[in-house]
Nucleic acid binder design. Structure first.
Lengths: 166, 166
DNA sequence: TATTGTTATACTCTATAACTATA
DNA sequence: TATAGTTATAGAGTATAACAATA
C-alpha cells in the first residue's frame, strides 16, 4: 500500500519539460518507433508481473525456465538455453539456484555422461502451478487491454518479430 | 560474417526436446501468453538494433536518453528520468558517461541551483543524427515484418500496455 | 520539510572465453 | 575435433536508502 502524502509539493523545475515550465516532454521520432514502445511495454509488463507474484516468487525469466522444464522433462541444459534464446552459460547460475531451492532435479544420463536431464521436483511442480495462476491473472490483464479482437494478430506479430528480426 | 562449419556435427542429446530424441520443445501456456512474447520480441529487437549500430555506438536506452535531451534542451534530470520511467539514480552514471564522451552538457541554473539543465553538444547532435539513421533502418525492418496495415494498431496497443498495465 | 542530484550498495541478466570431461 | 556444462570475468541495467546542497 502506498504511503499517503500529507503535504502537497510545490511545482518545481524538475517536473518541467524544459525551461522551468510544465510543457510535456517531446519524444521526437521515439513516439512512432516500434522498438522504443516494445521496450517500454515489456518493461511495464515485467513490473506488473512482479506485482502479481507479490515479489515473493520467481521473475518472468525464471518462471519461463521452470515452465520449459515442466513441459519437457528430461530436457538438457543446451536445449533449454536454445529454447529461450540465451547462452548456456547464462543458465548455469539460474539452474543452480532453482536446484538449491529444491525446485528442479538434474540427473546425469548413462548414454552420454556429459549431459544432464532436467526435471521438476514435487515442490517445483507445486511452484509451477502457483506461478501459472499468477501469470494467467497477469495475462488476463494484458488481454483486457488488447481486446479479444486484436489479440491473435498482436501475438502473431510478436512471434514474427522474435523469429525473423535476427 | 559467420564462420563456415566444415564438419557436420553428429546429432547429440542436447539438441533434443527430451529423451534424447529431436522432438520440438513444448512451450506450454507460454506459447499463448502475451507477456512471454513481449519479452522475446523486445530482446530480439534489442539485439537487431545493436547489430544495426555495429556495436560501436549507443544501446537503445542510451539512444533514447540522447533523443530526449536533444528534443527537450534544458530538461532536468528528474524530468528526464520520469520521461523514460526509470529512477533518477539510474540516470546519474548514464549522464556521467555521456558527458565524459562529450555528447551532452550539464549546466546549473541560476533560479534553482539544485537542478541541472541538460543539452547536447555539437558532437552529441551529430551522434544523434547518426544513430537516428540506424534506428530508422532498424524500425523499417520491424515495419516490414509488421506490415503497414497493422502497424498503427500494433503501436497503439504497445502504448496502451505501457500506460495502463501499471 | 521537500526536492535535486549523488553515492554506496546490491542484485539480475547477459555474454565471451577458457576450461573439464566426455564423446 | 566437437560437444556439454562450468568457471571467471565483465558490463549493462535496475533499484533502494542515505546523504549534501538547496528550496
Amino acid at each position: 500500500m502506498p504511503r499517503i502524502k500529507l503535504t502537497r509539493p510545490r511545482p518545481s523545475p524538475a517536473d518541467a519539460g524544459r525551461n522551468g515550465t510544465t510543457e510535456p516532454v517531446d519524444f521526437g521520432p521515439l513516439s512512432t518507433w516500434v522498438g522504443f514502445h516494445l521496450r517500454m511495454a515489456q518493461s511495464a509488463s515485467f513490473q506488473a508481473f512482479a506485482r502479481e507474484t507479490h515479489d515473493t516468487y520467481l521473475r518472468p525469466g525464471r518462471f519461463a525456465t521452470l515452465m520449459l522444464i515442466g513441459k519437457n522433462p528430461g530436457i538438457s541444459q543446451t536445449a533449454l538455453s536454445k529454447a529461450n534464446g540465451r547462452d548456456k552459460s547464462t543458465l548455469t547460475p539460474v539452474l543452480a539456484d532453482l536446484e538449491k531451492r529444491g525446485l528442479i532435479r538434474r540427473k546425469r544420463t548413462t548414454e552420454d555422461r556429459r549431459t544432464y536431464r532436467l526435471s521438476l521436483t514435487p515442490a517445483g511442480e507445486k511452484m509451477l502451478v502457483e506461478l501459472t495462476k499468477c501469470a494467467t491473472r497477469h495475462d488476463r490483464n494484458l488481454d483486457r487491454l488488447i481486446g479479444p479482437k486484436d489479440r491473435e494478430r498482436f501475438l502473431a506479430i510478436l512471434r514474427k518479430i522474435t523469429a525473423e528480426i535476427g
